[in-house]
């Protein structure tokens, strides 16, 4: 609906309608599709979301009863998982570190890595202040994940470790980001490849040589969900 408005003005109004939940479902879905590939539209939406959120400033906070937290935890973390016992957890941790070690070796920086021409998934991992920006592009045909540090690097004596987070599973290390080179290729283990769709990638600050535990130990510097191209 343009109302004869210039396009940019029409988009401003449209972003407001979307933020207010006024669009019919088909128009809302179309807006979301456009927004996924249009940073300007995302910015228009973000302006509305920030400004409208201020309408809740006048609403008094109310402490919810403890049962809500209990129910939330029960639905997210069913107790039966613990039934696996610490042996299961240990096995999981060992698998994760074994994978990490395998993949660390698999990172190949010697061939002058090339960004895949037609990646299946991409992600931009950026710290809030953009002091660290890493882009990733995954080629499903070869199972290779291209990673490039566009901005920032590990602190002195530290390493940047890349993690794959699929669903509710524990993060799996994909190895360390190259320190000297800006870009590298991670050969994603075959068993992990099916988990990339809809997964997230994260970068944490770790001791030199990577996390000693197989799980992230330092600050999480950036997280992003991979998106289909």
């Amino acid at each position: 609906m343009s109302d004869g408005m210039p396009e940019r003005e029409a988009d401003k109004a449209l972003a407001g309608e979307y933020a207010l939940g006024l669009l019919p479902p088909d128009e809302a879905a179309a807006f979301e599709r456009r927004m996924a590939s249009d940073p300007d539209l995302r910015a228009l939406y973000a302006d509305w979301a920030e400004d409208l959120a201020a309408l809740t400033d006048a609403i008094d906070p109310v402490r919810p009863p403890a049962r809500v937290w209990k129910a939330t935890q029960a639905s997210l973390f069913p107790k039966r998982r613990k039934g696996r016992g610490w042996l299961g957890v240990l096995c999981g941790a060992l698998t994760a570190s074994a994978l990490a070690l395998g993949l660390l070796v698999a990172v190949d920086f010697t061939q002058g890595p090339q960004r895949p021409a037609a990646p299946d998934y991409v992600a931009e991992l950026a710290a809030e202040d953009r002091s660290l920006v890493v882009t990733a592009a995954y080629d499903a045909a070869t199972g290779s994940l291209y990673v490039e540090r566009e901005q920032g690097r590990a602190a002195e004596g530290r390493a940047l470790e890349l993690w794959l987070i699929a669903g509710d599973a524990a993060p799996v290390s994909l190895g360390l980001l190259p320190d000297e080179d800006r870009a590298g290729i991670v050969n994603v283990a075959p068993e992990l490849r099916p988990r990339l769709a809809g997964a997230s990638l994260a970068i944490s600050d770790e001791p030199a040589g990577g996390s000693p535990t197989g799980a992230p130990t330092g600050d999480v510097l950036a997280v992003a969900q991979v998106t289909d191209t």
Partner: peptide
């Protein structure tokens, strides 16, 4: 922000 980032890691 930090808590959200850590939530993403489980």
């Amino acid at each position: 922000e930090n808590w959200l980032a850590k939530c993403a890691l489980g």
